[in-house]
């Protein structure tokens, strides 16, 4: 992540905590969810996984700086979640999963920046699989507020693979992270394979 993206992610991820501090947002808390970690994680995952602007070799230092920059913010969210009544193991697991997803999202984006082809493929998969499906599912569940259940079951099924959908679900629940984890691993592998030409 570049400095600007890092600063943006840092400020944006702190925003929910600052809003709660000011009394403008009530995140609540119970033993089954960790809303602060999930909300901060949503922003970090979204920004860390964005396709990179420049093309060039993957920089391990930039990648690790991005991940390490997220850690203190997530630690604050974790501490606040536990103080607000979240079960300690649950909150730790959510924060850990968020950090893992931030690391994998950023790794996929950094591996994808090695060639034009890999960047395009990474961008397409990221915008469709991570961002698009999560937004589509959100729209389908929020838009038609009727008593009749939505027929678009495949959308919510496919959205399980989006790490953003997982983070959104973790705000007030305990979604399984396996599909999102598999998606990110596959995206890393795809970015690595398609970016190989440039390295050779």
């Amino acid at each position: 992540m570049g400095s600007a993206a890092l600063a943006l992610a840092w400020i944006a991820s702190l925003a929910p905590l600052l809003l709660e501090r000011g009394g403008a947002l009530v995140l609540g808390g119970d033993s089954t969810s960790a809303p602060r970690s999930a909300l901060c994680g949503l922003i970090w995952i979204a920004l860390a996984g964005m396709p990179r602007v420049h093309i060039g070799p993957a920089d391990l230092r930039k990648w690790s700086t991005g991940v390490l920059g997220a850690a203190p913010v997530l630690a604050l969210a974790l501490g606040l979640d536990i103080s607000a009544g979240a079960s300690r193991p649950r909150a730790v697991v959510v924060a850990g999963q968020v950090l893992l997803f931030v690391a994998l999202s950023a790794l996929a984006a950094d591996l994808g920046m090695r060639s034009l082809r890999s960047r395009r493929i990474h961008a397409a998969v990221w915008f469709v699989g991570a961002l698009g499906l999560a937004l589509l599912d959100l729209a389908m569940s929020w838009g038609p507020r009727t008593a009749v259940p939505s027929e678009q079951g495949w959308i919510s099924g496919a959205a399980q693979f989006s790490p953003l959908h997982w983070a959104l679900g973790a705000v007030d629940g305990s979604p399984a992270p396996f599909a999102a984890f598999a998606f990110l691993i596959a995206l890393c592998a795809l970015s690595w394979l398609t970016g190989k030409e440039r390295v050779q």
């Binding site: 600052l18 709660e20 009530v26 808390g29 602060r36 103080s83 009544g85």
Partner: peptide
């Protein structure tokens, strides 16, 4: 019992 609010 209001929602649990934790202020940073």
């Amino acid at each position: 019992l209001g929602a649990q609010v934790a202020r940073a």
